[in-house]
Design a protein around this nucleic acid. Sequence first.
DNA 1: AATAAACTGTATATGCAATAAACAGTGTAT
DNA 2: ATACACTGTTTATTGCATATACAGTTTATT
Lengths: 257, 257
Amino acid sequence: MDDHIKINFPPGVAISWGLEKQSNRGPKRELNIDQIVEAAIAIADKEGISSVSMNRVASSLGFTSMSLYRYIPSKDDLLILMQDAACDIPNPIPEGDTDWRENLRKFYEATIGVYIKHPWFGDIPITSIPITPNNLQMIDYVLGGIRELPLNDHEKMSIILLISNYARGAGEIMSDANQAIQAGASPGTFSGVDFSNALQELVTSDRFPNLHSLVAKGVYTDDNKDNDVGDDFEFGLERILDGIERYLKLKEQKFDG
Amino acid sequence: MDDHIKINFPPGVAISWGLEKQSNRGPKRELNIDQIVEAAIAIADKEGISSVSMNRVASSLGFTSMSLYRYIPSKDDLLILMQDAACDIPNPIPEGDTDWRENLRKFYEATIGVYIKHPWFGDIPITSIPITPNNLQMIDYVLGGIRELPLNDHEKMSIILLISNYARGAGEIMSDANQAIQAGASPGTFSGVDFSNALQELVTSDRFPNLHSLVAKGVYTDDNKDNDVGDDFEFGLERILDGIERYLKLKEQKFDG
DNA sequence: AATAAACTGTATATGCAATAAACAGTGTAT
DNA sequence: ATACACTGTTTATTGCATATACAGTTTATT
């Protein structure tokens, strides 16, 4: 039926769109894909993506690893499905709100939220532009938030790429930090405070003429409470939004003048 | 000797700083760390990070996998060393040049270059802020490029985080695209052109009210030659630089006015 | 009703991975 | 001369993804 559509999709993508035909012959299925993905996510959330093995997922459901292959053709496809499932979030952008700056902030925060909630999210390799339904849904959300901007489609997509890319980086680093801390590393291990003393001996002024003074002052490895990682990223986000605003103003001038 | 320094470092980091004591007893070593890291990088460059196994690296040097453990305590440490070695690049910023915008662009390009040259680079998980020597060297480079800016240390580090984070995202996507294409996927597979027809059926206006028209027009999966992935990222970079410029102007006004 | 086809979950097996442990040989310090 | 600290290797363990063959189950066809 939908065969003509799915032809080029990787199997995981086809499944995410529900394009897999099922037949009625044979015994009733005891599992379903959502259940498997959910179980995999539960394990990844608790113990990291490296704990997600076919055996582990199947066992947690009371089945053998091979049973999963009746539903999902490979582990890579399972990862695609996990990634897409993690993107299934409510629209962070208020209906009808046309404050694009605030809307992009909301989108940024929602994206970061995915990384925080699912620290493994960034560990799944990207093998194409987003084409699974919930990934596209997020793009749809943010497109709604910049609907009114006088930009062409390409410009809009570039801006979305800019923000989501920035959020990806920020999200990865934040969740890595969380993970490291949860894994028993002292908070300072990630921020670098634990290394501060060692670095002060190693970052010499001859080899690192510019960095030396920052390390000596302890700025580089500083993590006082007023200035956590998240704050640094919000600083960057505001610079990005300013840059977009500037671009909008320039375009307006071209029209008006 | 240097024992007091390295105490808290992960072994790979300690090795990268050359903090490992060696003794003269026993047979002459037939390998050295640089050689091992070089061999691992050669394999990763050619066949991807997943082809890098201890056995594979050792074999390519004519040794057994276990021999590597006499030099590097674990594969994770080998990855840290590979990551740092990939960052050993010449300073992209011209001596004495004070055009911060151009300098940040150069830094961005050099960073992207690392991802292009070593497509596996982004696949290595970050477990702390950069503390290995070549990673720090890159930070030193870019700090030199914004030396003259009237910003405090924290602000400078935030800006570097902003740019390098953006470059990371851009680099990952670009190298993923390269990889996918090299791996035999048609160029269109990554850009989405191959999926365009299918998506036009799936991205319906009721489920994706904002994205629908873009996909229908083919913009989302468009990859005409005038507009490749790299261009999209340069657009974003200029927005970021504009945003930084705006921040500088605001600071100046505070001083002047 | 009988049977073939298409499916189900499982048991078994393969090959590759990281790495621990035990080993035999090799230099150096005593 | 010999004990020690090291070298690279052999062997073994454990966990992984997944191919293949199986026995049982449901439906479609005869």
